[in-house]
Amino acid sequence: MMRFDPFRDIEELTQRMDRAFGQGNGTARLSPPVDVHEDESGLELTLDLPGVQPQDIQIEAESQTLTVQAERKYDRSEGRTAHRVERAYGTLIRTFSVPPKYDLGKVEANFDHGTLTLRVPRSEAAQKRSISVRSGGQDTGSRTLDAGKSSGTQDSKDKDGKKVNQ
């Protein structure tokens, strides 16, 4: 789950205004559509970047922020008249606030047929671990504790994967 980012609405509004009116230099800032999924291994972000070349994509990760920027260039050839230009050209940019339970130092990026897929793994500290519980010197079985939850009630599972109430 993504944390609330109070500046996201402002950024999206700015991007919509740029798209509607363009920037003063003739290129617009565009916000590509994105799908964000989460599973046990981490986050997966999938962005549509049609018409973008891989060398025109920049990905930066810093201070729990992941930024994707790409350039979709318009080919303005001499001797050619444009009667209609409806496709968007310019800078495509998206910024994501990523919770600290994910490791931005290990982001993987794959670009295929205009789709950029980013995988952000969970940090080592947020991984589930099996912990053996001993009673009177004997092993009573292992339980899996979710390290990503805050202190208090935690879900745990026994060695057969059944949920154990604590």
Score class of each variant (00 low, 15 high):
M1V: 12
M2F: 02
M2E: 05
R3S: 05
D5N: 14
P6M: 02
R8T: 00
D9E: 12
D9M: 09
D9N: 09
D9C: 04
I10L: 12
E11R: 15
E11Q: 10
E12R: 15
L13P: 01
L13F: 13
L13Q: 13
T14D: 05
Q15K: 15
M17T: 12
D18R: 11
R19H: 04
R19K: 11
A20C: 02
A20E: 09
F21M: 11
F21G: 05
G22H: 07
G22R: 13
G24Y: 08
T27S: 11
A28S: 14
R29D: 00
L30A: 08
S31A: 13
P33Y: 01
P33K: 05
P33C: 02
D35C: 02
V36N: 00
V36R: 03
H37A: 13
E38V: 15
E38I: 15
D39M: 08
S41R: 08
S41F: 08
S41A: 14
G42R: 02
G42I: 11
G42V: 12
L43I: 04
E44C: 08
L45A: 03
L45P: 06
L49M: 04
P50Y: 05
G51Y: 04
V52R: 01
V52L: 01
D56I: 08
D56A: 08
I57R: 00
Q58E: 12
Q58M: 12
Q58W: 10
E60S: 15
E60N: 14
E62W: 06
E62G: 03
S63Q: 14
A70F: 03
E71Q: 13
R72Y: 03
K73C: 06
K73Y: 03
Y74I: 14
Y74C: 06
Y74L: 15
Y74T: 12
R76V: 14
R76I: 13
R80E: 13
T81I: 14
A82I: 15
A82W: 10
A82M: 10
V85C: 02
V85S: 10
E86R: 10
R87P: 08
R87S: 15
A88N: 14
A88G: 11
T91F: 02
L92T: 06
L92F: 15
R94L: 00
T95C: 05
T95Q: 15
T95E: 10
F96K: 10
S97W: 01
S97K: 14
V98G: 08
P100L: 06
D103M: 07
L104R: 09
G105L: 03
V107F: 03
E108Y: 03
E108C: 07
A109M: 04
N110C: 04
F111T: 02
H113Y: 07
G114P: 11
G114M: 01
G114D: 01
L116Y: 03
T117W: 04
L118K: 08
L118D: 00
R122D: 00
R122C: 06
R122Y: 03
R122A: 10
Q127H: 09
K128H: 07
K128W: 08
S130I: 12
I131T: 13
V133Q: 08
R134T: 10
D139V: 04
D139T: 05
T140S: 12
T140H: 09
G141R: 09
S142K: 13
S142N: 09
L145Y: 15
A147K: 04
A147H: 07
K149Y: 12
K149F: 13
T153D: 07
T153M: 03
D155C: 00
S156N: 09
S156W: 11
D160E: 11
D160F: 08
N165M: 06
Q166M: 04
